[in-house]
Design a protein around this nucleic acid. Structure first.
Length: 152
DNA sequence: GCCAACGTTGGC
DNA sequence: GCCAACGTTGGC
């Protein structure tokens, strides 16, 4: 099983929003970065565990756990001119962008803030704590996963 | 609101 | 293929 971290701005889509969705499940659309797309397309498997990370907000950090319930398939928002994620270069016959479906598991007991994660020497190789990192989806090693959960 | 980092675009 | 300009991300 693989572990991941996925970022979302709570103003746009928060963990509370995910919890309220039908079946507590939502498709993770709008990713327009090739590295992140490739991970969803090639590596994310049903049952993989995912940290939900709130970015660009008062206290950026990990706020909950989710799991992959559907593997990569075309991101339809790229075909919709009304969508803010519309990409005229994505052809429905040959979709450029991919999404997965994600299901809510639980909130963490508290927000595990970015500031706190940065203090952990054992996590210094995580892209998340590296300056200038902009990846919205990133792999988490099993050791990092269990260590972060031990901080709860 | 500022700005560093970095991805993308497009002229050449 | 290079690289400057521009746009976006996201912490602070």
């Amino acid at each position: 099983m693989n572990y991941w971290l996925m970022k979302s701005e709570p103003n746009a889509f928060s963990i509370d929003d995910l919890e309220k969705m039908p079946n507590q499940t939502e498709h993770w659309d709008g990713v327009r970065n090739y590295q992140a797309r490739n991970m969803m397309r090639d590596q994310m498997k049903i049952g993989d565990q995912v940290f939900f990370y709130h970015s660009n907000c008062e206290i950026p950090g990990i706020v909950g756990l989710m799991e992959v319930v559907r593997e990569g398939y075309p991101d339809h928002t790229a075909f919709d001119p009304q969508s803010k994620y519309f990409d005229p270069k994505s052809d429905p016959e040959k979709p450029r962008w991919i999404m997965v479906d994600i299901k809510y598991i639980r909130h963490t007991n508290r927000v595990i803030s970015l500031a706190e994660l940065k203090e952990q020497e054992i996590l210094e190789n995580m892209p998340l704590v590296r300056k200038g990192n902009r990846l919205s989806i990133m792999p988490v090693s099993p050791a990092e996963w269990s260590y972060i959960l031990s901080l709860e």
